[in-house]
């Protein structure tokens, strides 16, 4: 029996070394997409099965069209290079959450790239890339830290352009997820004036360009004896994301 176990463990690592898992990605991708994207909207009870199926198909197409139209609207305004990807799975283990995308190294993805929703709001960062699939950490996961800027409401209109406005006063800090729900901004000096409703955007570090929208300031926690203040951020991304876009490097 011991021989069996040693053989199986040996075989397991050989398969991983030879990248044999890529075969499974190709086989399972369509089924995963079908399953993950199956719960789109409510389906009303109907006596006619055929109409029911057609209705679901139409609803799916309509929803997909709406998402793609919003993407098109956002992508035409932006000068970035994008790749669209379907979310095909989600997993959480030991407090670590990650999502699966159906695009990988073959399509030009690599770790560290930003993942956006249809409105151009940051959802997460790609963590690991395989030949056919890739994985990303959502920004609400506590294991992801991103450098971010708080920008006052008057300058929020500048964030559509990829260049930083010289006039806009920004306050920098580090954003981290909290309990898989909220975002907290840390290391913001106590003397900086921040208002509730101010916008939060990426700061242009960590290989992610400046100006990608993250959220809005929801709460300010100032303690008199502390060096830094903590800011609670309300993320602006769509929670039920099925199709995402990944910004490619120039």
């Amino acid at each position: 029996m011991r021989k069996y176990f040693i053989f199986v463990i040996f075989l397991f690592f050989i398969i991983f070394l030879l990248k044999g898992e890529n075969l499974f990605y190709i086989i399972l991708k369509p089924e995963q997409k079908l399953l993950y994207q199956s719960n789109r909207g409510e389906i009303e009870d109907d006596f006619c099965r055929q109409i029911k199926i057609e209705n679901v198909q139409l609803k799916n197409t309509q929803l997909e069209n709406e998402i793609l139209r919003e993407y098109l609207d956002f992508l035409t305004k932006s000068k970035d290079k994008f790749i669209m990807a379907n979310v095909i799975g989600r997993r959480t283990e030991s407090g670590i959450t990650w999502f699966l995308l159906d695009r990988g190294e073959k399509q030009g993805l690599r770790s560290g790239l930003a993942v956006l929703d249809e409105n151009g709001v940051l959802i997460g960062i790609i963590n690991k890339v395989e030949k056919e699939v890739s994985y990303f950490h959502p920004i609400f996961d506590q294991h992801l830290s991103i450098a971010a800027d708080i920008i006052s409401q008057e300058f929020l209109t500048d964030i559509g352009s990829s260049k930083k406005n010289e006039k806009s006063e920004t306050i920098s800090g580090i954003i981290q997820g909290e309990y898989g729900l909220n975002l907290k901004m840390k290391y913001v000096p106590l003397d900086k004036e921040i208002k509730i409703g101010d916008g939060v955007i990426t700061s242009g570090q960590d290989n992610i360009r400046w100006g990608i929208i993250i959220g809005q300031v929801a709460e300010i926690d100032k303690k008199p004896n502390a060096i830094f203040q903590e800011i609670l951020i309300r993320p602006l991304f769509q929670t039920d994301f099925k199709i995402v876009s990944v910004i490619l490097p120039f």
């Binding site: 995963q32 997409k33 399953l35 993950y36 799975g89 997993r91 699966l100």
Partner: peptide, 8 residues
């Protein structure tokens, strides 16, 4: 497949 891709 159900474990990894069923969102509910």
């Amino acid at each position: 497949l159900l474990e990894i891709s069923l969102p509910i």
